[in-house]
Design a protein around this nucleic acid. Structure first.
Lengths: 226, 226
DNA sequence: TACTTAACTTAACAATTAGTTAATGATTAG
DNA sequence: CTAATCATTAACTAATTGTTAAGTTAAGTA
């Protein structure tokens, strides 16, 4: 599977913190880049286009607040989720941070596990409501739009046909008899002839071709994938 | 103006904290409801449908962690942004909180101004991306003027029609059933027949043509874009 | 405020489509 | 070869959606 890694940029002038964060984030499966001051951070951000920036507030050259402001003003970057890191002792206020567009604010010392939970929570939220798709060979089954894409062509299936295909695709290479299919797609409380399945299979094949759903004689149907 | 207030639910067993939070949030312009334990919180949440819940962790009857879990499991509530409140001394861990779906985590003592900044930041983020204009194919949807431009022709839609179209365009290719549309556009507290949606769809199609909104039989409607 | 218009909702009926059944023809396995 | 099983078609029924019109409510204006 080609699940693209999420991109995170960490910015801090202390090398040890950069290393700590980078190590933990990469272990968690993120793609990480780092910068050691605010000016470099903006440069890297433009090229790397991170989804999250962990931004130290107090830095030489250009502090985090100013850096954040620049990021939030940049058309390409202003959707980035910015998390400020700050030592409790520093006088920068949380209020000021949020005023320049910060999205979160964490005080040092950094507790790696807690930080990871926070970041994972962010991505969980981001991904929710997103695609509910199954790609199988050249078939793309999209539950949210009730469509099947076959070589780019979009085919809208009626509900039952879609549910049936979706069910089979979800369980590839597994054979189901008609009663099992009825039970799973029609539900247990409906009385429908088993032959009805045949007709729906027929309709589906008519639309996507015969090569996907295989008949297993004496048993039932399955979605075949090599 | 009819800028609907954002809804926030605060949950804490200490009356004084409820009052502090309610006071500050209302001053900031939010619509606030409160609950004094986890069980009541879930009840209130179902009726009030808040956008943000401030949730104390340690409470009698049912603690915040369990409450959060229930909220995140509820289909209608799981988009709510949950912020945990916890005393630094309590042994509940930040990690555990995020594991049950928390979206943010703040330690007491509560600094009202900082908390407000945080919540404002959340809504700022939410509202962003709800841009005033959406261009989709040859349709330009302009929220500020409630107009739709189609090949240069300007069409003014009445509110409900506009909101409906806007919602669909904002979530292209995603099918919504009538109840979901009612909930999102009419709100949870209005009782309107589901078929009302059909009539509005009809009116929209009359004005912009039939080719944009697709009916998915047995399911609902979607805005189609290749 | 009363008048006027537009928006919104409901209800009724028409049109369409999905879903099911049943009948017939084709295929396969033993 | 022949039962059994599946494919296919067509006809039928049930469910869903489209459309219109009329009744209500809300908004705007003199």
């Amino acid at each position: 599977m080609e699940n693209k890694k999420h991109r995170i940029l960490v910015v801090d002038d202390e090398q040890s913190i950069l290393e700590l964060l980078t190590y933990n984030l990469e272990k968690e499966g993120y793609e990480v880049k780092s910068a050691s001051d605010g000016i470099k951070a903006v440069e890297v951000a433009k090229a790397f286009n991170p989804e999250v920036i962990l931004l130290d507030i107090m830095m030489p050259n250009q502090d985090g607040v100013e850096t954040c402001r620049q990021i939030k003003e940049n058309k390409d970057l202003n959707n980035t989720f910015v998390i400020f890191l700050t030592a409790r002792s520093e006088e920068y206020s949380e209020v000021a941070a949020f005023d320049v567009g910060a999205d979160d604010y964490i005080t040092k010392p950094i507790k790696p596990r807690a930080l990871m939970s926070r970041i994972n929570a962010y991505f969980r939220r981001e991904l929710k409501g997103k695609k509910d798709q199954i790609l199988s060979g050249d078939l793309l089954i999209d539950r949210s739009s009730y469509t099947v894409r076959l070589n780019g062509d979009e085919i809208i299936l009626p509900k039952k046909e879609f549910e049936l295909l979706h069910f089979l695709v979800k369980n590839p290479n597994e054979v189901f008899n008609r009663d099992e299919l009825l039970k799973n797609i029609w539900g247990t409380d409906v009385y429908v002839l088993a032959r009805t399945v045949d007709v729906h299979i027929r309709k589906i094949r008519e639309k996507i071709g015969d090569s996907y759903i295989t008949t297993v004689k004496g048993v039932g149907y399955k979605f075949s994938i090599e």
